[in-house]
Amino acid sequence: MTTLSPENSLSAMLSASFILGLHPFVRTEAWKFLTGYYSWQSSQDERLTVNSMRRKNYNALCQMYEKIQPLLENLHRNFIETQNNIAYDLQRLYDKDPLGNVLIDKKRLEKTLLLSYVCNNQAEYQRGFHEMVMLFQIMVEHDHEIFWLFQFFLQKTEHSCVINIGVGKNLDMLNNLITFLDPVFAEHLKGKGAGAVQALFPWFCLCFQRAFKSFDDVWRLWEVLLTGKPCRNFQVLVAYSMLQMVREQALLESMSGDAILLACNKLIDLDADELTSAACMVYAELMQKDVPQPLKNFFL
Rank of each mutant, 00 (worst) to 15 (best):
T2C: 08
T2A: 03
L4G: 11
L4H: 02
E7D: 07
S9K: 06
S15L: 10
S17N: 14
I19S: 11
G21P: 10
L22P: 03
H23T: 13
P24Q: 04
V26L: 06
V26S: 13
A30E: 09
W31R: 11
L34Q: 10
G36C: 04
S43N: 00
S43F: 05
Q44N: 03
E46S: 10
T49R: 05
N51W: 01
S52E: 14
R54I: 12
R54D: 12
R55C: 08
N57P: 07
N57W: 12
N59H: 13
L61P: 04
C62M: 07
C62N: 07
K67M: 12
Q69E: 08
L71D: 07
E73P: 00
H76D: 08
R77N: 12
T82I: 06
Q83S: 07
Q83I: 01
N85Q: 12
L90F: 03
Q91P: 00
Q91G: 10
L93R: 13
Y94W: 11
L99C: 05
G100A: 13
N101Y: 13
I104S: 03
K106R: 13
K107H: 03
L109A: 15
L114R: 13
S116Q: 07
V118K: 04
C119D: 04
Q122G: 10
A123E: 06
E124K: 07
F129G: 00
E131S: 14
E131A: 14
F136Y: 10
Q137K: 09
Q137I: 14
Q137R: 09
I138S: 07
M139C: 13
E141S: 08
H142M: 11
E145I: 14
F147L: 04
L149N: 08
F150Y: 10
Q151E: 13
Q155L: 06
E158N: 05
E158F: 05
C161I: 02
I163L: 12
N164I: 07
N164S: 15
N164C: 14
V167E: 08
M173A: 06
I178G: 12
F180W: 09
D182S: 15
V184Y: 01
H188V: 04
L189T: 07
K190S: 14
K190P: 00
K190Q: 15
A194Q: 08
V197W: 02
Q198D: 09
P202L: 10
W203G: 05
F204M: 13
F208P: 06
R210L: 01
A211Q: 02
A211V: 11
F215P: 00
F215L: 03
D216A: 11
D216Q: 10
D217I: 01
R220A: 12
W222N: 04
T227W: 15
C231A: 13
R232A: 15
F234R: 00
V236L: 14
L237Y: 14
L237P: 05
L237F: 05
Y240R: 01
L243P: 02
Q244E: 05
R247A: 00
A250F: 02
A250Q: 09
L251H: 02
L251V: 12
S254H: 06
L261D: 01
A263K: 01
N265H: 08
K266Q: 11
K266F: 14
D269R: 06
D271V: 10
A272N: 01
D273R: 09
T276K: 03
A278E: 00
A279T: 04
A279H: 00
Y283W: 15
Y283F: 09
L286A: 15
M287W: 00
M287R: 09
V291Q: 03
V291T: 12
Q293F: 12
L295R: 10
K296M: 12
F299T: 05
